[in-house]
């Protein structure tokens, strides 16, 4: 049976002490009621626990998550699942800016839309957005996959390194050094796996793939127009 915690009058420090199990508890399932847009809810979790947050959260929900499965039944503020290392974070609503920023691993699923800079500097995380993403998503993205089932706003993949972007809808504009690349059977298989893991029903054949042209990897004066 899940341990239920009401945040109406509680503080975040006490909540995270319980969710991080630093108080010695052995619960594996938690439900957080009335998060009221509070920041850093379920940040720094390290254990294989399931946390369901019933409502909207503020900044940095599930920040630096390791192993835990966190579900936000609502919208999430800036930096949801930032620097996630492993585990799963699912947001049933929309995410604000910088969702999954710098994440090294794990899976972030956004069932609504994600705002600007989704996946900025991502370092291995997989992000699946059922809706659309804002401008400069996957900016300086180093590794991992960003799947966008809707549209992407301007500057997609600007200065991208080795991360891979899949877009089903329209990419309004690509950032510096980001190009469309061939979609092979291998890529479709990887994308299918990502969609399956995210619980998203989409046809991989409907997506296009984007990545780095690798022309800006070394600083050359010939590329000065792109800087």
């Amino acid at each position: 049976m899940a341990k239920e915690i009401d945040l109406t009058d509680g503080d975040i420090r006490a909540l995270n002490t319980v969710l991080q199990r630093r108080d010695g508890n052995n619960h594996t399932d938690f439900v957080v009621d009335n998060p009221m847009g509070r920041h850093a809810v379920a940040a720094g979790l390290t254990d294989d626990v399931a946390v369901t947050i019933k409502g909207h959260v503020g900044y940095y929900c599930a920040g630096m998550n390791q192993n835990a499965s966190v579900t936000v039944e609502g919208n999430a503020g800036v930096g949801c699942a930032e620097n996630m290392m492993s585990g799963t974070v699912r947001v049933t609503g929309d995410c604000s800016q910088s969702a999954g920023a710098t994440g090294h691993g794990g899976l972030l699923v956004v069932e609504g839309n994600a705002s600007s800079r989704c996946g900025i500097s991502m370092k291995g995380i997989d992000i699946v957005v059922k809706g659309s993403v804002g401008h400069n998503s996957a900016f300086m993205a180093q590794a991992g996959n960003l799947v966008i089932c809707g549209d992407a706003d301007d500057g997609l993949g600007d200065s991208i390194y080795e991360a891979v972007i899949y877009v089903k809808g329209e990419a309004k504009g690509l950032g510096a050094d980001c190009i469309e690349k061939d979609m092979t059977d291998d890529h479709r298989a990887k994308l299918k796996d990502l969609l399956d893991r995210a619980g998203v029903t989409e046809d991989p054949a409907a997506f296009r793939r984007y990545g780095s042209a690798r022309k800006l990897y070394n600083f050359k004066i010939d590329n000065v127009g792109a800087y």
Binding site: H39, A40, A43, G58, Y60, G79, E82, S98, T102, F139
Partner: peptide, 15 residues
């Protein structure tokens, strides 16, 4: 990548 300005910084430090 995930904060801008002092109001955000306060939230980041708390995180």
């Amino acid at each position: 990548p995930d904060w801008t300005g002092p109001d955000d910084l306060e939230i980041k430090l708390r995180e």
